[in-house]
Design a protein around this nucleic acid. Structure first.
Lengths: 221, 221
DNA sequence: CAGTGATGTTGACACCGGCAACATCGAGGA
DNA sequence: TCCTCGATGTTGCCGGTGTCAACATCACTG
């Protein structure tokens, strides 16, 4: 029985791991520095040798969560096979956008704690346009690429492209927030799934109709 | 100069008022029982004669916020004049839905603190269908009424009605969250306003196309 | 082998939510 | 009129938390 060495040897990583686990279990409120320290077998305050602040630790967890969210989205979109003919490409691009949204919501429901931490420390997306260095771990980048594709295959009118990323993100994010820990948290699985279908179909249908039709009532009054 | 009396006389109301003010300034984190007590000129712990818990006080603030949110929405929708002919009624109903969303977002941006407190303690909406006792202070009730109207005037197909309330709420709530204190918080006013237009137009356009058209890619894969 | 910087520990402080015991005061019955 | 009693407010305290400061340990480097 070797007595525990004075130095941990890998404290920073161990703390992050414990923090991620705690975030999964209890969200931001579960990220208690002293608890994590004890969980890792180290005295309180040791964490401050590796993180200036509790916030710094939270940010680290958020980054891990961001990666997982992006992965969840990509896993979904990558499963859509490419279309054979032009019409198939359109269907594929539309399906990819929907799957992307489903991945987002699935993650939020499967990992509500991480999801909350994530958005407590989400940085301003660097590129709201299409340029700038694209962080491949940023969900926003993934979404933008899918929407560009939707224009390329001719489903979404180029005039309707600006702002589409915010529309999609808003719809899916709102759905996720309302259902994961918000006022709709008690809906049963079937109802929730059907509601998400409606959200995604609503967007898809709208983008299929971007030929200068619906205008008039939506402008500022 | 009369010395302050031992009993406050109206402590509960004063505390709620101070709490609402604090929530406006700093959100949920600003709701510190001891600060509120001092602010009202009373010692800490006096609050516990009127609220069992800090959470009880937060819930009270949330209720005030809920009322203000509903008011903000109604103020907007009420400004849309009724349509003269059937076609005008359609335009009016569509405009009312958009104005409702704008009111929601405006409130979230004007009162980010209250907005956050509100959704930290938002109860599960009692009636997800159309029946049940309708709390006139519940924004969800307002939204449902507008959507029913949209069906009545023939803009939204009855088959597309189920789930529409969740779609609209999701889109607008997500937009509000992302912009009020989320990753899009730094967007300038003009960009933000244009983006909201896009969101509302996207929904309006989709509802105008609910004639059995767009289907195929959005179903579960 | 001394020493030095990185890492971990101990102890303290301020702050917060909440409990318990005590103080004050107004209203209503003797 | 007086006196009790319940509602309201106060003081003091406890446990938990983030964070700072001073000290301890250890691995490496000259």
């Amino acid at each position: 029985m070797t007595t525990a060495p004075y130095h941990h040897g890998n404290l920073r990583a161990a703390l992050v791991e414990a923090a991620v686990a705690a975030a999964r279990e209890s969200g931001p409120d579960g990220l208690v520095v002293r608890h994590l320290a004890r969980r890792v077998g180290v005295s309180h305050n040791a964490a401050y040798r590796h993180f200036s602040d509790r916030d710094a630790l939270v940010a680290e967890v958020a980054e891990v969560g961001m990666g997982e969210l992006t992965t969840a989205m990509r896993r979904r979109t990558d499963r859509v096979p490419p279309g054979a003919d032009p019409e198939g490409e359109v269907l594929a691009a539309r399906a990819r956008l929907s799957e992307c949204g489903r991945g987002y919501v699935d993650f939020a429901l499967a990992e509500p704690g991480l999801f909350r931490v994530l958005f407590a420390a989400y940085p301003s997306p660097p590129s709201l346009g299409t340029d700038g260095t694209k962080d491949p771990d940023d969900p926003f980048v993934v979404l933008n690429a899918l929407l560009d594709d939707l224009v390329r295959v001719g489903h979404l009118a180029p005039e309707a492209r600006p702002g589409a990323e915010i529309t999609c993100w808003s719809a899916v994010h709102g759905f996720a927030v309302l259902h994961s820990e918000g006022p709709l948290r008690e809906l049963d699985e079937a109802t929730r799934s059907a509601a998400l279908d409606v959200v995604l179909e609503t967007i898809d249908r709208s983008y299929g109709a971007t030929t200068g039709a619906g205008r008039g009532a939506a402008g500022p009054g």
